[in-house]
Design a binder for these strands. Sequence first.
DNA 1: AGAATAGTGTCTCTCAGACATTATTTG
DNA 2: CAAATAATGTCTGAGAGACACTATTCT
Lengths: 234, 234
Amino acid sequence: MSRWLSDAVLHFQASRRSIIKVVNSPRLNVNVVIFSLREDALQVLLTPTDVANWALPEKSVGAEESLEQSALAAFSRLPRPPEVYLEQLYTYGDPGRIPNQRIVSVVYFALSPIGALGTESGEMAWHRLDSLPALAHDHAEIVAYALRRLRYKLEYSAVGFELLPDEFTLSELQQTYETILGEKLDKRNFRRRILEAGIIEATPHRRTGDGRPAQLYRYRPDAVAEVKARRLFP
Amino acid sequence: MSRWLSDAVLHFQASRRSIIKVVNSPRLNVNVVIFSLREDALQVLLTPTDVANWALPEKSVGAEESLEQSALAAFSRLPRPPEVYLEQLYTYGDPGRIPNQRIVSVVYFALSPIGALGTESGEMAWHRLDSLPALAHDHAEIVAYALRRLRYKLEYSAVGFELLPDEFTLSELQQTYETILGEKLDKRNFRRRILEAGIIEATPHRRTGDGRPAQLYRYRPDAVAEVKARRLFP
DNA sequence: AGAATAGTGTCTCTCAGACATTATTTG
DNA sequence: CAAATAATGTCTGAGAGACACTATTCT
């Protein structure tokens, strides 16, 4: 069994009666801001804390674990990592961001397609972004930053598809954009631009529903690099 | 005196003859990729290592120190922090990126105006980006990523000014852009766009030299042209 | 037939990019 | 006046945004 170093200073009294004082590095963990579209609203997965508020999913970084693996483990205890888009957001490490502790948090940003991730992970729950509960520490600031980043990325990358299932209609895609950006978009311009960009292609299927059936499209992952090779992160 | 935890596993034999095995968090440090224009070329500050190659300036994160403070301390031992642009780049933490050690590095990206920072900091030296020496660990990859980010940021933000002194001519600014992007830009288009963006203003001064004296400009930090439009610059 | 949703084309205006000559200073 | 560098305007093509009607299916 092993034990994690926890506080700033540990005292060990060794067999020779000498005192060894060990000052550790800041403690390192990982938080994840994971977004999903549920009930036509953008939602974030949160985990309850003992002091009647909520926090971002969190995990300390295992000795043999990459930061990404830790991030995946933070919000899912499933044996196989769920299909989510995952990207590093920012590392928060100011002393004082968490009272009486020095914790450096590498924060990841994740997008989950509808239904790809349930609330199967313990007591976590999805919360609408427009009515978040009180959040621990600086987590509200972190969520706000993640949202800014999501909106910004929508404009120059194909990240919107990561919130939809494999096949989707153009109306669904447009609604996704509208929900995230918080504004209405023109249908014809939206379709023209998304189609001319060549990042989606029609599938042989149609979705039947209330009115006229809609053509289903799928995302072309191969075409992403084509469109704009302007990636912000490695 | 204190001692930093260094390796993955520490064994302590306590007075009661029981074995306490302490597995520590990954060790945390900060690296900085700092760019400057010297001799009409983009250069990066490196520190020599004992194995005949070079590394990015580095510092472990002190218990009471913010990550930014650590970053500043990594490349300058000056009592007062030098005037540099500093921004967090990415956090590298794969196990195995550094043999036999688990080190997570928060990497910062910095820009220094000409002359704002000498080589007064120990044995560090500036190296041209187009002829870098061998770099330790994954530092070559990190530098490459920092350069990508610098080029990308040039396109939508006012970051180019951070490499110039307070007052500069439009020709100098254009040369800065050309050096970083590695391509020639059209003089009239460059001037039109940079002036219409409103992020610089003329000063009462001129720089006299070989030919016709040039108008000096200064950057207007108040006109935060942060993310005004996509592709604000060439 | 009516309700519901899908699908489609044109015009205008702004802006990026290509391009060459004149202006001011020094030696 | 020659050399050196600074400063300036126009045209054109591509793409963004505004805008309204027809098509298909179901009940």
